[in-house]
Design a protein around this nucleic acid. Structure first.
Lengths: 157, 157
DNA sequence: TATGTAAACGGTAATCATTATCATTTCATT
DNA sequence: AATGAAATGATAATGATTACCGTTTACATA
């Protein structure tokens, strides 16, 4: 049974092929895992989950595929400062709303927030245009993160 | 001759001691290098520059000191996605204005921009308060970066 | 449906930034 | 000068990611 991701499985499939890449069982499994993830997974997390449904997968292929998916915009890659990259299905393919991240520097917990997101995005868009013109950049992406200490971490101390 | 950094050498000195750390020749040299840097230096960059004025320094001390300076807020640590951390003297100690970063994904060049910064900061402040209340976080920091391709990289392609 | 070929693969070794360890030195206080 | 804690530098260890390479697979074409 095909899983639906945001704009749908077919859309991901077409996007991958549109960039000259092939659709394989391993890649399908990686997209499956990402679409069912409720948190931000590391390459190793993804490896372990994919391994359950497609035991032949190698860690190398996980990295390779994530890199491709990031490049073509199906996946976003993040660094929350714990020494390993974390990945999430992009907005366009996941059906999730646009969000930014709030990171607890104590326990590493991450909140996806959408509060103020419209205002943020409006300002970002304006800023992007200004920067683009002034510095002659073609801006493709932005990153906003807040860092702090969550309630239980500040109590625990 | 003592170098002036933003609020001044004495201020850095007092801040370091205020947190229970000692002021040493190595740490002084690291602050010197950071205050004269015109770009965002990696630990290795800093090591090489400090080594010229204080040849006994070890790479370990560079990492140790940068970690401390980051923790007490004299230095900001960034990851621009090239596999190594980069450091800059914090606003409060460098005399530089508050800025965010525009990163070229082609050549890695980084623009410190201050355009729209007032609006950005105002929105960030408001967002911070909202998030803080809603998610019970004590927010200490934020990160904004734009990614794109600079003019010469898009021509070179 | 069979086939040729480039893409993708998995396993392993290599890379490389950062950390841990530890014996020695230095600093600040008495 | 003596003391104890903090800081140091050399070295080894760590761990995520990447390079390499011989084999397998997907898929456009016949």
């Amino acid at each position: 049974m095909k899983q639906e991701y945001g704009k749908g499985y077919q859309w991901c499939h077409r996007k991958i092929k549109g960039h000259g890449y092939r659709m394989t069982l391993g890649r399908e499994a990686i997209l499956d895992v990402l679409s069912q993830a409720d948190e931000h997974l590391s390459a190793e997390d993804i490896y372990m989950r994919v391994h359950k449904i497609y035991p032949n997968i190698g860690l190398t292929s996980i990295y390779r595929t994530l890199d491709i998916l990031d490049t073509i915009g199906l996946v976003n890659k993040f660094d929350f400062g714990h020494g390993r990259a974390r990945y999430e299905l992009a907005e366009s393919s996941s059906g999730k709303n646009h969000h930014h991240h709030l990171v607890c520097t104590g326990c590493g917990h991450i909140v996806d927030y959408t509060d103020f997101i419209d205002e943020e995005v409006a300002l970002l868009k304006k800023t992007e245009e200004g920067l683009s013109r002034k510095y002659k950049f073609t801006i493709t992406n932005h990153l906003i993160q807040f860092y702090g200490v969550c309630e239980s971490c500040s109590e625990r101390k």
